[in-house]
């Protein structure tokens, strides 16, 4: 019998959450689960892990690149590789360039916003500081991108 990778790696996920702040992760996931919008997500703790996941390299070399999330929620302020660089690399690869990406950030800086759009982000959202508003925003994001938006069924 051939060896199989862990289930979480094989499974097609709805959302790839790229976030190094454990507290924000918990809040986002809590909002998704509470509203039963999805329980199929994967969390990448830094930019390199996100790229490995999406491009099927490193620890995700066995993943199928045609099975991509319906949405990538990407934190802007990641270390050491920032969210803008992750975005640039995903858009540079023809196999992954059309995956919907929403930038989630605490930054209200016009430069970050313009650069994100220049690099081809689908949407840019400033995280509400208030807990209740944050949960409401996470719900709306998931509802919009999972239930309403259509993206190409296959990459490339």
């Amino acid at each position: 019998m051939s060896r199989r990778p862990p289930l979480s790696i094989q499974m097609q996920v709805d959302i790839l959450l790229v976030e190094d702040d454990a507290e924000d992760n918990t809040l986002t996931l809590f909002a998704l689960l509470k509203h039963q919008l999805t329980n199929k997500f994967h969390v990448a703790r830094n930019g390199q892990e996100a790229l490995d996941y999406v491009l099927c390299t490193g620890q995700y070399a066995n993943r199928n690149i045609t099975e991509q999330p319906h949405l990538i929620l990407l934190d802007l302020n990641l270390q050491p590789m920032g969210g803008l660089e992750v975005l640039r690399r995903i858009r540079a690869d023809p196999r992954t360039r059309t995956i919907p990406i929403v930038m989630l950030t605490a930054s209200d800086e016009e430069n970050d916003l313009l650069e994100s759009y220049r690099l081809g982000v689908n949407s840019y959202i400033v995280k509400p500081v208030d807990f209740k508003q944050f949960k409401e925003a996470a719900r709306l994001v998931a509802e919009y991108w999972l239930l309403l938006n259509r993206s190409p069924s296959r990459a490339a």
């Binding site: 016009e110 916003l113 840019y124 959202i125 709306l140 994001v141 509802e143 919009y144 309403l148």
Partner: peptide, 22 residues
Amino acid sequence: AAIRTLGLYWLVLNRPPQRAAA
């Protein structure tokens, strides 16, 4: 319902570029 969600998303939640170019 779709128009309502779409409106809230793009008019309230999403942050558009202030200037289209730059």
